[in-house]
Design a protein around this nucleic acid. Structure first.
Length: 302
DNA sequence: AATCTAAGCAACCGCAAGTTT
DNA sequence: TAAACTTGCGGTTGCTTAGAT
């Protein structure tokens, strides 16, 4: 299949962006929104290719970018997500609001690699440098108990959607009958800039005060444990656009605190694997949810 | 003060996946 | 159904700057 060049190279600027160009791009996006990158440069009066505009916006101009150094907590999150996902920078960035994939990638290459090496850890395998075995293992923990679980994907972290799916199904199998669904929460940072569970209006309206207190306690406990819990696909929000409906793009979306702090959830997390936006197969949680809502309806005489 | 070197980071490039025609 | 097109990702490059010599 042939492909046309993304832009006419002889008519485009390259290299560092000027303040004027930045301003033009920001002004244009402020008025028209993101998207249509190919036609944007012409419409905005920029002598840049669409790709370049997109990159500049995403990595530098976006208003929601978090500036400044990475915190130690962010470091640890990146390390743990990298151990799970490998060089899936966009997925990792999706879990760190305000950080871009490029920023994380650069930070990994310039800081974290060295940090891991200085700890005697191989940054590729996340195993001790002097260790020869290539089988990757993942340590998962819960707030109540610490369990080391050997997952059986080998050699490298999952590289494709299919592999992530496989890993998720392994998790399903290993945990679904043993733990509350909240254990799928991906990480329990000690603190986070993500809005709190309550701020995000995720509190179940049907929750009693006791239940809320219990959840608060669980939340406190979970914050004391900053180990990463495995949650590769949890809480995938249904989105409108077809492209956003792809499983991987949904993976990339920032997770809300509802998804992050699974331990404070009372509502089971949706684990459906909806590849085309249609709910073809319901996960256990959704089946239970449907069942209980049916029951509620019938109990309410509906 | 001049030069060299390494680190940090913005930006580019090629490719693949997804979408549209 | 296939070609054309768009978007986004990950690897890489190259410029800038700070520190060392």
């Amino acid at each position: 299949m042939g492909r046309s060049p993304c832009c006419e190279k002889e008519h485009t600027n390259k290299g560092a962006w000027t303040k004027e160009e930045d301003q033009r791009l920001m002004d244009y996006i402020r008025v028209h929104g993101e998207g249509c990158w190919r036609s944007l440069p012409k419409a905005a009066g920029l002598l840049r290719c669409g790709k370049s505009c997109r990159l500049r916006w995403i990595n530098y101009l976006r208003p929601d970018l978090k500036r400044g150094n990475f915190t130690d907590e962010e470091d640890e999150i990146i390390i743990k997500l990298h151990s799970l996902l490998g060089n899936k920078w966009s997925l990792i960035a999706g879990r760190l609001p305000g950080r871009t994939d490029n920023e994380i990638k650069n930070y990994w290459n310039t800081h974290i690699k060295r940090k891991l090496i200085s700890r005697g850890i191989d940054p590729h395998t996340h195993r001790p440098l002097n260790e020869k075995t290539t089988t990757a293992t993942i340590k998962t923990t819960t707030s109540a108990t610490t369990k080391a679980t050997q997952l059986d994907f080998k050699n490298t972290p999952p590289q494709s959607l299919a592999e992530i799916s496989l890993l998720k199904s392994q998790l399903d199998f290993k945990y679904n009958n043993n733990f509350h669904s909240s254990q799928y929460s991906i990480f329990n940072p000690k603190k986070t800039e993500t809005p709190s569970f309550e701020e995000n209006n995720c509190t179940s309206s049907s929750m009693t005060t006791d239940e809320q207190q219990q959840q608060q306690q669980q939340k406190r406990e979970s914050h004391q444990d900053q180990d990463v819990n495995l949650d590769l696909t949890i809480g995938l929000a249904l989105t409108q656009t077809s492209s956003a409906n792809s499983a991987e793009s949904r993976l990339r979306q920032p997770v809300s605190s509802c998804q992050l702090f699974g331990s404070v959830l009372t509502r089971p997390v949706c684990l459906c694997w909806q590849l085309d936006g249609e709910r073809r197969e319901l996960c256990r949680n959704c089946q239970n949810q449907n069942q209980s809502s049916k029951n509620n309806h019938s109990n309410n005489g509906l």
